[in-house]
Nucleic acid binder design. Sequence first.
DNA 1: GAGGGTTTTGCCAACGTTGTATAGTGCTCA
DNA 2: TGAGCACTATACAACGTTGGCAAAACCCTC
Lengths: 337, 337
Amino acid sequence: MPPPGLKDVAARAGVSIKTVSNVVNGYVHVAARTRARVQEAIDALGYVPNVAARQLRSKRSGVIALAVPELQSPYFAEVAGLIVQAAERRSWTVLIDQTDGHAERERNLVAGLRRHAIDGLIFSPLALAGEDLARGGDTPMVLLGERVWHGPADHVAIDNTAAAAEATRHLYGLGRRGIAAIGAQDQPSAVTAHQRLAGYRAALAETGLPFDPRLVARVDRFHRADGAAAMAALLDRPRRPDAVFCFNDLLALGAIRTLLSRGVRVPQDVAVAGFDDIEDGRFSTPTLTTVAPDTARIAQLAVDLLAERLGDGPAAAGPPRELRVDHRLVVRESTVG
Amino acid sequence: MPPPGLKDVAARAGVSIKTVSNVVNGYVHVAARTRARVQEAIDALGYVPNVAARQLRSKRSGVIALAVPELQSPYFAEVAGLIVQAAERRSWTVLIDQTDGHAERERNLVAGLRRHAIDGLIFSPLALAGEDLARGGDTPMVLLGERVWHGPADHVAIDNTAAAAEATRHLYGLGRRGIAAIGAQDQPSAVTAHQRLAGYRAALAETGLPFDPRLVARVDRFHRADGAAAMAALLDRPRRPDAVFCFNDLLALGAIRTLLSRGVRVPQDVAVAGFDDIEDGRFSTPTLTTVAPDTARIAQLAVDLLAERLGDGPAAAGPPRELRVDHRLVVRESTVG
DNA sequence: GAGGGTTTTGCCAACGTTGTATAGTGCTCA
DNA sequence: TGAGCACTATACAACGTTGGCAAAACCCTC
């Protein structure tokens, strides 16, 4: 037996189909008596609106998509969870998509998904930057990450450069003078890596420390294994650092693992700072000094921005905005024993 | 300008709407010439089928839902990622939903979502068990976790009890005699906790060790903080354990944190084993001994089972099945220094 | 070149919902 | 008491797609 539709509810309540629709959509001008009778019929039949039909008619699906490079990464998982929660308050459903950082997949997503079925898109691009993102439909889009191109999308981000500089200055403030960095990347699209590197360099310049390329380790991805390998490489180079700023917490945890397994003490011999404030860093040994972005606010803002664009209000159109979100440096055992 | 529809493509190619539909759906009897002309028009216009309309007509959406308690938990994030990948091979989209373990939310999901919009559901219940799950539509459902009730759904799970026993025996085999457990839960619906506790008790019984309730710590959730608190409580009790079996890796990492911060050596003084084999445990200090379920296979099987139920083939109907997935004990530094 | 079968295409209806236009109801106020 | 008005409910069309069916075009054989 097919699920009941407005038709069935209407028949049972003895009213027209449209009246039922009005009740369901909370239209104001429905007599209390009628409303009650309809509601009773709805409950009795277990009526649930058919999303497909509703979308077909009204062009709104109540679904937004969230595209992140990978869910396995705790940072993205956390952001995803928060966005789902924020969206739920607007009774939106979130379709989470994983791009694995493949440009192809990101492109498909932007071009394909955006045509139908999705009211809006929150996108954390990894491989894609620039005009590629501008393509595909006019579905409202909010980008997580700094604005590095000039397409028609809103951005939500922390000040990566300032935060990275802050972390680096913290290490300098501890008296460290051989401050290494782990997480540099070559691809021009790796904006996050570039900005954090820029912050690191800015702090060095500011404090008068020379920039030494030998103290900067490149990585392919931002995973623990990459951090572990990069740290090993740094230790094998002639000049051994007494502090490391890692561009995210996973890299830092991997680096710490390498240090400890080689008998290097953290933080006495080498101080380590990370970025993201994932939960792991709060319970690792040693606990991790890190830059904590206000992820809850990032999620909330992303959803709010999308809502504005989706709304029929005055703010629906307008130039793309870039919203800056706070961050703070959380000092833990990996830098001050 | 609204996105192009079959109508527009038909006009451009000079054929009827239905012919375009036939081309899109790969209907056999379309002349090669016609097909080519239509395809060219599709490409030129960038036509994308309207999912809503298609679903309205054909009752298939190409979307399956995955409901997990929380994405923040690395284990679920990993499983979610793998399921998305497995689903992609069947060109399904996955709608990931977070229940936060709230019974209410899980119930809504099962009752509401299943009516429309979703072809199938992969569900990892936390709060809900029993007949509650049986309600709501006839959308095919696959449960992640052992079968503890008798509704009409397929199950994919590892043998939690056997795996827990294995981990406990491993600790016993190291010569430990005060083996504690962290992760017991009281709610009858906490099936996972019950089964792992059962495995722990079975192993004790088998080895002749008495079961001591003072060595079993209850937790509210399976997070690091709970593990840390539980471990602190265990250390404060009169009888101090020399080994701990934690019902998941997060609990274990939290427990290790407490041990190390109190100056207790791991594994020399207390050996710790976990469950899930999340990535954190491979890079923590010490690295974590744990039970590794074959998550890739779990994901693949869940999707395959759903596909069978969705297919029009002979296996579409039939009694619910329970599929057992392998696991193995991964021994690392937290038990053997 | 006509008859029969096969391939290909076109028309119509329907999926379940909502927006628009409209009819009906009961009230207030002159 | 009737005109005017606000409120309430209804009828109908349309969203873009696909399945069923009929018509048209094609190909072959005799």
